[in-house]
Amino acid sequence: MRDPGFALDEAAPDNRARAVEVRLTQVGLGVGLGLTRRLGDGVGGLLAGRVLRILSDRHPRAFTALREMPEARLLIDPVDAPAALLLQVGPRLALRVCDRHGVAEGAVDAAVRGPCARLLDLLEGRIDGDALFFRRELAIEGDTALILALRNTLDGEDMDLFADMATAAGPLRHALPVARRHAGRMLDLLDSARRAAPPPLRWGMAALERRLAGQPKRRPQGS
């Protein structure tokens, strides 16, 4: 469902870039989960920790506020991505990728679920959380105050996840702006490649994506 109040023009390059960002996030979460599965929490945690540090450096007001909150754990669950995020607020602020099915009952204080694109919009304040909730695109569970505090804190920033990542040091610095700039063309290429490819190659692409996402073979990701 699109929201006429805020809908970005489907044809706009910005929107194509968004689609790439959503896909990158989904794949990133899959990679994170794969690393975590194979190498343990430490390595997966490093990746998410890195993202958290970059954002924290860029948005000190919000991240100071998150560290000042009472310790609590929030599951951020993009339902169309292979993995979820577990955010711990409070003095020991931490972020890690997790398997949404592997979160033990009672291990989190609250959960927020929605499409990956919507959660990204919310993180960056491109959309109003209340409106999403009214329209039932966002589901929340558990400690409502915790979710509200996080939402309000992040909304206070002019956050642009990919721009923030891109300005930080490291390999992403080069990859992300390029990905964004060529978003439209990349999507076109990917789409036409998919359409044009003979079945075996299509399967191969799916397998590649699965590997990237760290998914077991019997649970292919819809793409």
């Binding site: 805020f6 304040g125 491109r126 109003d128 209340d130 409106a131 909304d155």
Partner: peptide, 10 residues
């Protein structure tokens, strides 16, 4: 005042 900046802008 409790709404997101996207609401306020719109």
């Amino acid at each position: 005042r409790q709404r997101g900046k996207a609401y306020i802008a719109a």
